[in-house]
Amino acid sequence: MKNKTQNIILIVLIFILIGGPLVLSHGEFGGSDDQGTQQITKNDPGYKVWAKPLWTPPSGEIETLLFTLQGSLGTGIITYIFGYQRGKNKQKKQAETAAKTSAKKQTA
């Protein structure tokens, strides 16, 4: 199978996997670590949290902002690398064909 068709199939599968639960399940989609923390207090009600985070994002909006920034920066790096390589390959190909045609001209 060609890589391209394979990739398209895989992307569709990922969409189904991630989108499916949103449609089918009616959970609140809270974070699983919050549940984990609840479970800890259930198992050991006497446990005292002995350290606190040094800084927390002031609001949900700020958090979303930072969240989006993280995703877009990472994607930026990845797409930059792919684009850079694609351009490099293309240039190499052009240079090769140019060299071939000039070689042909010379022999003719």
Partner: peptide
């Protein structure tokens, strides 16, 4: 953070 079948996200 993605939704999962269990109704929570991770």
């Amino acid at each position: 953070k993605l939704p999962s079948v269990t109704g929570s996200s991770s």
